[in-house]
Design a protein around this nucleic acid. Sequence first.
DNA 1: TTGTAAGCGTTATCAG
DNA 2: CTGATAACGCTTACAA
Lengths: 325, 325
Amino acid sequence: MRHVAERARVSRMTVSRALNKPGTVNEGLRKRVLDAVAELGYVHNQLARNLSSQRSNVIGLVLPSLENSIFAQTLKGISDILRPIGFHLMVAESTDDPEDEEQVVAAFVAQRIAGIILHSTNHTPATVRMLRSSNTPVVENGDFPAEPIDMVVSYSNRAAAKAMTLHLARLGYRKIAFAGLAANPRADQRRLGYLDALRETGLATEPSRVVSVSRGFAGGTEAIACIANRLPDTDALFCAGDVLAAGALFECDRRRWRVPGRLAIASFDDLELMRHVRPAITSLRLARYEIGHRSAQMLLDRMEQASMPVTFVDLGFEIVQRAST
Amino acid sequence: MRHVAERARVSRMTVSRALNKPGTVNEGLRKRVLDAVAELGYVHNQLARNLSSQRSNVIGLVLPSLENSIFAQTLKGISDILRPIGFHLMVAESTDDPEDEEQVVAAFVAQRIAGIILHSTNHTPATVRMLRSSNTPVVENGDFPAEPIDMVVSYSNRAAAKAMTLHLARLGYRKIAFAGLAANPRADQRRLGYLDALRETGLATEPSRVVSVSRGFAGGTEAIACIANRLPDTDALFCAGDVLAAGALFECDRRRWRVPGRLAIASFDDLELMRHVRPAITSLRLARYEIGHRSAQMLLDRMEQASMPVTFVDLGFEIVQRAST
DNA sequence: TTGTAAGCGTTATCAG
DNA sequence: CTGATAACGCTTACAA
């Protein structure tokens, strides 16, 4: 920048102003500066900028898993907001482990990010303390936390799972099983919602049909195997994840079980795949893109005015009834 | 940091050293410093660190699309390398548009990233100039570029597509169609590979069976519709993408076409889905995770020693033969 | 081993 | 509207 200033025969301050607030600088000078910038191939140093101005143009995103495709839409929703205003996105993985998350958050705070989006809602006390004392705007995404750190943009896993289970009951299914990941906070909430619904419809007198499975398509295979062996009279299966549901459907196909004749299948999260398999799978549609979009927007709003007009958003869910139930 | 220094009654330099090179500072002092850090809840400022030391601990990743799940593994591969050494990842989207990519690269260079990974291999001259003159280590990923900017970790789209087409020919298919995205540089290369193979096997005398389709499962539907209408004697379809292939398979199912009896289907990119549909789809397996892993590693190697031991890596591909062909 | 001085490249602030 | 000066919070280089 010094070189640019010399070349344009102005002070460095004028260069800075010409670049940041073009309106506040005389047209002739501005042109000289811009020309010098072009000739020198000068690239503004954001690091110095951020350090000097005590603010940052990057926001952090902490996801349980980088490999899970359901986050792609959220990522896109965030990116679409940040891009036009010159902000950037740093991503990291927490494996849903609060200790890991703490490490990542510490690193992000050290990086002086302008804001952070957390998918997990389960944090160590140190994580919360760091975020609070550094005054970092925070949005939590994955569920409604019992004690929000700051802002929340989400839907209720429990309410959604309950609604879907009630939907299945309303369709006449009576022996509804639930398959979900073990030891996953969101799957746990969904399981609770499922049990809520059973209780409400009086189906709770049925024996428990909760099965814990592993991640991916294989989990669906396991769920069907479990039903075949231990719960053969099950008439509907509610999977706490779309890949799970697809895996279950494929396994039914292999076993020549008719869906929904032999077993109805419903899923959580409405990936495009759900709509294309045969039969298409009934699913819960969540506003994944919107979650990212709103989260980023709220982070920015908060930065501009330290006041807090909106801190809690429920984006809800929709039940998409298809041929599988 | 000044507060920490005061509290520990040492100079700021000693604090810096105690934090960065614990070995070079007396044990007693170090303990005093660490205690002070803990009591004050002090968080190192990476921005200032990076500015002062003229280096950075973040690397940039530019992907054609944030929503495409095939990048998830690459992302993970990169992250697994960066995390343990305290580096971070900034992601952005280029939509495969060199102009957009230029914007993103400019922003990343302004951010003084330590290195950059580009999926696209098609750049504007300005992009290349910026990267070169800023001396940023670069890895290109998506294909083998005609003129690499710097390092390359990839596989050959053209060679892979040719190999798969030859594989189909070897299995006895004679009227092989190709479906791919229009105006996508990687799809274009795959198309060329397909044509290479036809020429080599003498099948080139057949009429052209190249169809351009849209993105997603719908593209597969379109491909099948096109075959049904315009190329009914086609006996095999090679899809330049896994989601495309799955979409095609689902459409065959809907039309009650037997796969591979009526039409064989092969795909590019071996997502888990390919293995779980019925019939399982023959596919090209690429080392997506490894690409990320190696790319990140090479970036780091390059930073340590400005020499360049490895600059070009072909990670190759595998053909996974399954029931669909 | 520890401390001092001089930046790193920008912006905030205040004067002109 | 423009410029001088002092931060921003750290590290490099050198001195003690």
